[in-house]
């Protein structure tokens, strides 16, 4: 997803906020399926991490459970499929469960995509202008924690090599680890004094701090942001006006196919497919260029 995640952080954040909120509030199965389809395509285009398949399998199992468990606990709806003892198992509850599972799957997928596209750094950048000092503190915390972890490992190693962690019983082992932890924390604070001096020396205390970042808002970012906002407005309009309304109980309604409803579906599909489309277009360009060389 290089093409997509290279966009300006503000575009990315608007996009994910819009897709996630719309997915969560969408009732209509068409909209839910649009979200799932876009998410699947997006995730499919990402380079797979090892263990991705197992996670996908677990998610699928969970979704199946949600779809089947809903009718076991919810007995609304008029179309009874069969009875389990005295309780009815209704078609409406089953459909609702299935739709809920689709939404859940879509949200999980989109959260994963968000995680890979928007690093903490981009997120912090967006708030840097409003609160430069708070952001700076968060940046430092981000750097501090991995450093602390490394220091802990090194200290534990040094102490172990000296035979300080060799206690046979669990109690003395835990005491040994705690001793290392407290000493490393003290050492980190000691080191932090030097960091503070380095910040002072470079004028951290001066008023009127600016915030620098490598991101630049280009015309392309502007066009895409406008597209995202327009599509979001269209979908929200469709949902609010009732054109794409849908209800499960007491009886599942038919999926609306009025022009207004179709427009809403199309807009949402376009929105969710946006990253995949960008990616495919860029890949096509590369393929085209390579074939020309």
């Amino acid at each position: 997803m290089r093409a997509f995640s290279a966009l300006h952080p503000s575009v990315l954040l608007t996009y994910f906020l819009s897709v996630l909120l719309l997915t969560m509030f969408a009732e209509n199965p068409m909209l839910r399926f649009c979200a799932l389809l876009g998410g699947l395509l997006c995730a499919g285009l990402q380079p797979q991490k090892s263990g991705g398949r197992r996670t996908a399998g677990m998610t699928l199992l969970l979704l199946l459970a949600v779809a089947l468990l809903n009718p076991l606990f919810v007995h609304e709806g008029v179309t009874v499929l069969f009875w389990i003892g005295d309780t009815p198992f209704t078609l409406e509850a089953l459909v609702y469960g299935a739709c809920l599972a689709v939404t859940l799957a879509a949200v999980i997928l989109w959260c994963g995509i968000y995680n890979r596209a928007v690093s903490s750094e981009k997120w912090l950048f967006l708030f840097g202008k409003a609160a430069p000092r708070l952001t700076m503190t968060l940046y430092m915390a981000l750097r501090f924690l991995p450093g602390l972890q490394r220091q802990l490992r090194a200290a534990d190693r040094a102490q172990t090599a000296l035979g300080m962690q060799a206690g046979a019983d669990r109690k003395s082992r835990i005491r040994g680890k705690l001793r290392v932890l407290s000493s490393v924390l003290a050492l980190s604070l000691e080191n932090a004094m030097e960091t503070a001096a380095s910040m002072q020396a470079r004028g951290y205390a001066l008023p009127g701090r600016t915030h620098f970042a490598l991101y630049r808002f280009s015309a392309r970012d502007g066009v895409l942001l406008a597209a995202v906002l327009l599509l979001t407005a269209a979908v929200t309009g469709g949902m609010a006006s009732g054109a794409a309304a849908y209800s499960f109980y007491p009886r599942v309604t038919a999926i609306a196919l009025t022009p207004a409803a179709v427009c809403t579906y199309a807009a949402f599909l376009a929105l969710t497919l946006l990253p995949a489309v960008l990616e495919v277009v860029e890949r096509g360009k590369w393929k085209f260029c390579v074939s020309k060389i």
Partner: peptide
């Protein structure tokens, strides 16, 4: 102070506003 090389370079200039 920071976790990225480019940001570390900019730190002092940011302070100067």
């Amino acid at each position: 102070v920071t976790d990225k090389v480019w940001h570390e370079l900019a730190f002092g200039a940011e302070s100067l506003g």
